[in-house]
Amino acid sequence: MSKYTLLKSRKFFIALSCLALSSFASQKMLAQSVTVDATIDSLQVMIGQQAHIQLQVSMDAKQKAIFPHFKDYLIKGIEIIGVAKPDTQYLNNKQRMLITQKYTVTSFDSALYYIPPFSVKVGTVAYKSKSLALKVYSPRVDVSHPEKFYPQKGVMNPPFVWADWAETIFLSILSIPLLFLIIYFIIRFRDNKPIIRHIKIEPKLPPHKQAMNEIERIKVERIWQKGLSKEYYTELTDTLRTYIQERFGFSAMEMTSSEIIEKLMELEAKDINDLKFLFQTADLVKFAKHSPMMNENDSNLLSAISFINETKAEELTDIKPVPTEITVEEKRSRRAKTLLAVGIVVLSAAVAAIIAHVALRLADMFI
């Protein structure tokens, strides 16, 4: 082998050795960049108490960690009752990160437990934490004095707090007006009447105009031609009685025909004779079943009109008419009826829910 070839082989061997050492150093540095630490907040707990184990992994931000998974028990005797969501913190301008995983454990057997190291896999390498220990002990019992042991206490009722019942009381009070509102809606729905009555304000007519309007109606209907003479004279005399009562100021509706005539004569009213004949004819028709002639009916109608015109009071133009309220009942439309029915159903469901809620609260308190 020549001197040149030997020198060249030595350089290649040296370069290969440097490359291997560099790879080994980089792997070692990468391994040292991952740290796994486990701590426990209580080294000693009583049976049934809880302890918290904290597992922390520090690594590069580009790496991925896989934490150990436990089903029900950490080890035999130590039960896992809660696993918190991992908490991640970024460090060194997000070049590294610190992941914290918390486990809540408990035990119901007194013993000194050895908790083996936790294994966390980062990439393809598994890293382990240090081992832990947990002492679980039972409470001390003085068996030499059995008289100090007491039986189990009964269930204690919590104290009454108004704030706990504010919602129930409010709903109970609210259900009362809602119940009355449902009853009102049902009545209006049954009678086919609107929820709100419409009120019209109209001026009150003077007595003679009211009487003339009524007589005009009687004249148009001409019910005596249908054999209803008694009804005809009843309506005619009632119209005259109402007019006389409002015009002259005495209770003509409660007086007999003769008493009305006598009272009008005292007041020196006009056209008393024709009015007297009209009342006499009406009494005969109503009480003696008298059947007057057609011309007699027309004549009595004209006598009533003449009496009203002769005795009516003079109208004063500077006096404003007194308004009177007239209630107007209107039938609901189909749409309004549907909305009313829906309102009844919704309110009924709300009241039923309130009653059920109050009943459940009362049952929880007394049962």
Score class of each variant (00 low, 15 high):
290 H>P: 04
85 K>L: 01
48 G>C: 02
39 T>A: 13
278 L>R: 04
91 L>Y: 02
354 I>G: 00
309 N>R: 10
91 L>V: 05
61 A>N: 14
359 A>R: 05
109 D>K: 15
209 K>M: 14
367 I>A: 07
290 H>Y: 14
331 K>Y: 13
280 Q>G: 01
104 T>Y: 02
231 E>T: 13
267 L>V: 10
296 E>N: 09
16 L>R: 01
182 I>F: 03
273 N>K: 11
174 L>Y: 03
96 R>K: 13
187 I>R: 11
110 S>I: 02
14 I>Y: 03
247 R>Y: 02
230 K>R: 11
267 L>A: 12
182 I>D: 05
175 S>F: 01
28 K>N: 05
78 I>Q: 06
91 L>K: 02
243 Y>A: 07
53 I>N: 00
74 L>N: 04
262 E>D: 12
119 S>Q: 15
15 A>S: 12
167 E>W: 10
112 L>R: 08
91 L>M: 08
142 D>F: 05
244 I>S: 09
283 D>R: 00
73 Y>R: 15
42 S>L: 15
167 E>I: 11
97 M>E: 09
279 F>T: 01
354 I>H: 06
133 A>M: 06
258 S>A: 12
162 W>D: 10
49 Q>R: 08
264 L>P: 08
45 V>A: 01
101 Q>D: 04
8 K>C: 10
256 T>I: 04
274 D>E: 11
285 V>T: 12
42 S>K: 15
82 G>Q: 13
241 R>A: 07
30 L>E: 10
300 N>E: 06
118 F>C: 05
234 T>P: 07
350 A>H: 06
229 S>Y: 09
75 I>G: 07
89 Q>K: 10
94 K>E: 13
90 Y>S: 13
298 D>T: 12
270 K>C: 09
168 T>P: 08
183 I>E: 06
8 K>E: 13
85 K>F: 07
170 F>W: 02
214 E>M: 14
159 P>R: 06
266 E>P: 00
322 V>T: 12
213 N>I: 09
82 G>T: 04
204 K>H: 10
176 I>Q: 05
249 G>H: 02
221 E>R: 15
358 V>R: 05
86 P>N: 06
357 H>P: 07
355 I>G: 07
206 P>T: 03
284 L>K: 13
263 K>M: 09
39 T>C: 08
277 F>N: 11
265 M>H: 08
317 T>H: 13
59 M>Y: 05
255 M>V: 07
358 V>K: 07
91 L>P: 00
194 P>W: 01
234 T>A: 10
228 L>H: 13
259 E>G: 15
296 E>Y: 07
160 F>S: 04
362 L>A: 14
161 V>C: 09
330 E>A: 09
12 F>P: 00
126 A>L: 11
367 I>V: 12
67 F>H: 01
123 G>L: 00
141 V>Q: 14
268 E>N: 10
205 L>Q: 11
193 K>V: 09
242 T>L: 08
232 Y>T: 10
255 M>T: 08
27 Q>P: 05
242 T>P: 03
62 K>E: 12
210 Q>N: 12
